[in-house]
């Protein structure tokens, strides 16, 4: 039963360089910080980082799966507070969970948690879905 305070099942997505390349090709965002380690280091990043919108899309998938489809997602917002760092040859986690914050007027408000390597990557992440 879903009630305020319910913590939804965790889902772990895995990101690697191949996924970043696939997302770059699909989205058209070919910024080298998402694919070229030398360039990423040259601009002060710790390594290649995932596209913020990829992170948001994966968390959005978690939300839409819970809601029973994207048509039931009414609102979804987040701030990018830390990057998802994707070293070469590694699969890094994006661990997502949510807590039911409010149930009212046929809608469920979720407070979302998204971490990678134990680091919170999205801030103020929340969604409203149809009940």
């Amino acid at each position: 039963m879903i009630e305020v305070g319910t913590v939804l099942d965790e889902k772990v997505f895995y990101l690697d360089r191949a996924l970043l390349k696939a997302y770059a090709d699909a989205s058209g965002d070919q910024n080298p910080i998402h694919q070229n380690e030398e360039f990423a280091l040259s601009v002060g990043l710790p390594n290649v980082i995932a596209h913020g919108m990829l992170t948001m899309a994966l968390v959005g998938k978690y939300v839409s799966d819970f809601a029973g489809g994207s048509a039931n997602v009414l609102e979804y917002s987040a701030r990018f507070i830390k990057p998802v760092i994707v070293p070469a040859g590694e699969k890094v986690d994006l661990t997502v969970t949510a807590t039911v914050a409010e149930i009212a007027d046929g809608k469920i408000s979720l407070s979302l948690s998204a971490t990678s390597a134990g680091v919170k990557v999205l801030g103020m992440a929340k969604a409203v879905v149809n009940k």
């Binding site: 997505f13 996924l19 696939a22 997302y23 090709d25 699909a26 989205s27 990829l54 899309a57 994966l58 959005g60 998938k61 839409s64 489809g69 994207s70």
Partner: peptide, 14 residues
């Protein structure tokens, strides 16, 4: 094909 490519990345089937 563009939609398929995007959905494949995030695991969306719809």
């Amino acid at each position: 094909s563009e939609i398929d490519a995007f959905c494949a990345v995030i695991g969306e089937s719809n």
